[in-house]
């Protein structure tokens, strides 16, 4: 592994940390979709299975990216504390939306890196998560993955 450019603030370490955060979000999504699928039936369960597989693929990709940087990927937690109890199909869909929103936010962390290829990978994953979230939500949002704290209050426009 080459040493970081002297002018940048340790970009390699920043990249690994951001990749690990994205991986942690994917671990949570893989866990969460198991619960989502268990509470759905029919075509919605099939959709949950498809998304579950997509998150497994993304997790494997991130693990490979982290290993290629000479680091050990963070392991999945044994269990995750869910933000809401999931006992109904409606709650399962809400959890799927939340999982995708978290994943999108984590991938935006990759978009902030200086490595152009990692940026592009992150942006494509933000898009994939936004598409899945919109399908579960049944509607779209203006800023997938961006928390309100990252958005400026609108300022007055000149007429």
């Amino acid at each position: 592994m080459s040493s970081p450019a002297p002018s940048a603030p340790r970009p390699a370490a920043a990249a690994t940390a951001a990749l690990q955060s994205a991986l942690a979000a994917e671990h949570a999504a893989v866990y969460g979709y198991g619960i989502v699928g268990a509470n759905l039936a029919g075509s919605r369960q099939a959709a949950a299975m498809t998304d579950w597989v997509a998150h497994q693929v993304a997790r494997d990709t991130l693990e490979a990216m982290i290993r290629s940087r000479g680091s050990e990927p963070v392991p999945a937690a044994v269990a995750y504390r869910l933000p809401v109890a999931v006992r109904t199909p409606g709650q399962a869909v809400s959890l799927a939306v939340l999982l995708e929103d978290r994943v999108a936010t984590a991938y935006l962390g990759l978009v902030a890196l200086s490595d152009v290829s990692v940026r592009q990978f992150g942006a494509l994953q933000v898009r994939a998560a936004a598409l899945r979230a919109a399908a579960w939500r049944g509607s779209t949002v203006p800023f997938p993955g961006l928390p309100a704290s990252a958005l400026a209050a609108p300022r007055p426009r000149p007429s």
Partner: peptide, 29 residues
């Protein structure tokens, strides 16, 4: 860039590993 793009505390997340570690990035103002 780290001044602009800040990692949030895991405590702020509703979905965190039960072991207490892990979390996702949240962005700065």
């Amino acid at each position: 860039p780290t001044r602009r793009v800040v990692l949030a505390a895991a405590a702020a997340l509703p979905l965190a590993g039960a072991s207490g570690c892990g979390g996702v990035n949240v962005l700065a103002a």
